[in-house]
Every structure is written in C-alpha cells, then in structure tokens.
C-alpha cells in the first residue's frame, strides 16, 4: 500500500482523513448484522424482539439451549473432523494439481482449466441422488466409505471444494520465480525434489490461505451431510444439529443466533489467522 500511495501522500492528507472516516463508518455498517447476531444471542428471552441495540442483562440461556441440544458436542467434533480432513487433503491435492497446471506444459491444459470453472457451475442439489447411490455402492465394497459414515462426506466435500482451491492456488505457484527452478535443475535436483523442497515451503502460506475456503465449504455443508448421513445419530454434523433451531414455523431467534455465533467463530478465527496470505493469494489467482 505504501508503494502505491507514496507519490500522492503529501498532497492528499485531508483527503485521507475523510477516506479513513468513511472507511470506519463502512466497517461499522458491515459489522452491524454480525453485532446483532452476537447481541441477540446474549439477550435474555424477553428482550429478543426489542430493537434496543444493547442489553443490560446478558444471558447464556440461548447458548445453553444450543449446547444442551441433542449431542451438540459430538456434532461439533464430527464437523471439525470432516472440515479438517477436507482441508488437509485439499491442500495436498490442490497443490499437486496447481503445480501441474502452472509449471508444466502439456496438451489439454487449457481445457482442464476451463473444466475447473465448469465444475463449479453444476447445481449441487441436483447431484445428491447420483451421489447417494454411488456412496451406497462404495459402502457395499468398503464399509467405511458407505452411507452414514464420515469418510464419504470428506471425499464429497473435498471434490466440490477442490476446483476453486486449485484455481486459486495456481497464482501462488506461478508467483515462484522460474529462476529458482532453473537453479535447482542446474544443481541436479530432480523435479520431485524441487516440488517438495523448494516449491512447497514457498507456496505453503498460500496453501493455508486457500484452505480456508475449503474449510468454510465443509464446515457449512448441510446438503451432503443430510443426504449421506441419514440414519446414524452419532455421525451427524453441526449444520444438521442447527436445523432444529431453524424451524420456519417457530423461530427460536435466540437459539438461531447463538448457534450461528458458535458456527461462525471457528471460521472467523481461521480467517483472521490466514487473512494476510489470503489477500495475496486471491490476487495471485490470475497471474499464472
């Protein structure tokens, strides 16, 4: 940022102040819905529908209701397991693919890249039926990959978050100067060694950043979990548990907001953690 505005900085002091005030106001506006979510989660039952933007009697009732609901802790752990497995596998697979797609030249590369975009266009709701039967069949061969297990959930979420992850990661891989590769080649390093010992550490921050999107995808997934895990109570995931509170008939606002707060926090922590890398990764996404 400094580099961009250096030449104009001297002339634009008052302008910058206005910009900064505007920036803070906008930040506040953007944060209002989130603030409201957390606030409503803490409001006692009687105050929930009052429009007052504060509460003098914060209560944990709503959180307790959520935490007490059928197996919340268990579902939280299941969701975390699925999301973290997706993240780890997505990092590995998208790294390999991104390396292939940016640093190797081969026939059909452009076609593959276009396919990555097309893959994101398919409405996933439509695919639940074929996936159900596929997982059912897989389960008759390998029980752990069958219905009501967490493993197929990992694989399906992985498949559906991979195209975007690869697409984004290309930028990080491309940003590594070609000279490094040449130097490594001159040193007699094999391609494999170059990939793991040079490329991988350099791209690692980007990998973490990209993985946050896979994390969100898996963490928020409701559709696949509901379709594939339909009769095993113990393998349910968090969004399914939250569904109890999202009843259009009788909205338990406090419960919904407390649940949403609990669901948002892990993602937000992840986000803040990788924020810096995320930004450079997103811009890198087009430099391949």
């Amino acid at each position: 940022m400094a580099t961009v505005s250096r030449p104009v900085r001297k002339r634009r002091r008052p302008g910058r102040l206005i910009a900064e005030i505007a920036c803070c106001v906008i930040a506040a506006l953007v944060a209002v819905p989130l603030y409201w979510m957390v606030l409503s989660a803490f409001k006692p039952a009687g105050e929930i529908q009052s429009p007052a933007p504060w509460t003098f009697a914060p209560s944990f009732d709503s959180f307790e209701r959520v935490l007490d609901s059928q197996g919340f802790g268990r579902y939280f752990v299941n969701s975390a397991i699925v999301a973290l497995c997706v993240v780890a596998l997505s990092m590995l697979l998208s790294f390999l693919s991104a390396v292939a797609l940016t640093r190797f030249r081969f026939k059909g590369r452009t076609v593959l890249l276009v396919m990555l975009l097309v893959a994101q266009m398919v409405p996933v709701e439509a695919l639940t039926i074929p996936l159900f039967f596929m997982v059912q069949q897989a389960g008759s061969a390998v029980p752990a990959l069958g219905l009501n297990e967490l493993a197929p959930l990992v694989l399906v979420n992985l498949a559906f978050s991979l195209p975007f992850a690869i697409w984004m990661l290309r930028g990080f891989v491309a940003a590594v100067p070609a000279e490094l590769e040449e130097a490594a080649a001159l040193d007699g390093a094999s391609r494999l060694r170059f990939t793991w010992q040079v490329l991988f550490p350099l791209v690692a921050p980007g990998l973490v950043a990209t993985s946050v999107l896979a994390f969100i995808h898996a963490w928020n997934d409701f559709l696949f979990a509901q379709t594939l895990i339909f009769s095993d109570v113990d393998n349910r995931t968090l969004p399914q548990a939250m569904r109890v509170f999202y009843k259009p008939e009788e909205l338990d606002w406090g419960g919904i907001m407390a649940g949403a707060t609990l669901m948002t926090i892990p993602v937000l922590i992840f986000f803040i953690f990788v924020q810096r890398h995320l930004a450079s990764g997103l811009s890198g996404a087009v430099k391949g």
Partner: peptide
C-alpha cells in the same frame, strides 16, 4: 483498514443461513 477487513471477513465467514436470518 484492519477494521474494514475484520468486518468484511466476519460477513464472509457467516453461514448463509445465519446471515439470511439476521
């Protein structure tokens, strides 16, 4: 800038269903 980004990341991180209800 950090304030703006923090708010934006929060909006991004909110599950779609929760965001809609809010």
């Amino acid at each position: 800038r950090m304030l703006l980004f923090l708010a934006a990341l929060g909006a991004w991180a909110t599950p779609a269903m929760a965001g809609s209800y809010i």
